[in-house]
């Protein structure tokens, strides 16, 4: 469901995504949620990350920016935090809170944000 709705977004809406950041994604995510029942969208998870990683993943301070990185790289890193093969200060504890599908969805969300 996620990959379907996000892939669908990537193509025709990329202009909107770039211009309006998460807005277009959330509106579409809302639509996709209606058909995806109880799935959490990558956008919904993504907004909770911004408290540390900055607006749309563009960090203004010393916490790493995650906006505009490839979805593959973000997924690999989150999965490595999740299984403990990569050590962070706090990310191991946070990454364990998500399923692999949720990690892929939030990685796709931040991959769509303009890099800082």
């Amino acid at each position: 469901m996620f990959s379907f709705s996000l892939t669908r977004l990537n193509e025709p809406c990329s202009r909107y995504v770039l211009r309006a950041g998460g807005l277009a994604l959330l509106i579409f995510a809302g639509v996709s949620v209606a058909s995806a029942n109880d799935s959490v969208t990558g956008a919904t998870i993504g907004y909770t990350c911004m408290g540390c990683h900055g607006v749309n993943g563009q960090s203004p301070g010393p916490i790493p920016s995650i906006a505009g990185q490839s979805a593959e790289r973000l997924t690999t890193q989150m999965m490595a935090y999740r299984d403990g093969s990569k050590s962070g200060t706090i990310m191991n504890r946070i990454a364990k809170g998500y399923t692999p599908e949720e990690i892929k969805a939030v990685a796709a969300f931040f991959a769509q944000q303009p890099a800082k």
Partner: peptide
């Protein structure tokens, strides 16, 4: 590093 990230958290959330 967690003290550095505490400042980073404050910078990010207040900007958000």
């Amino acid at each position: 590093l967690e003290a550095v990230y505490a400042q980073g958290w404050y910078d990010s959330i207040t900007q958000d």
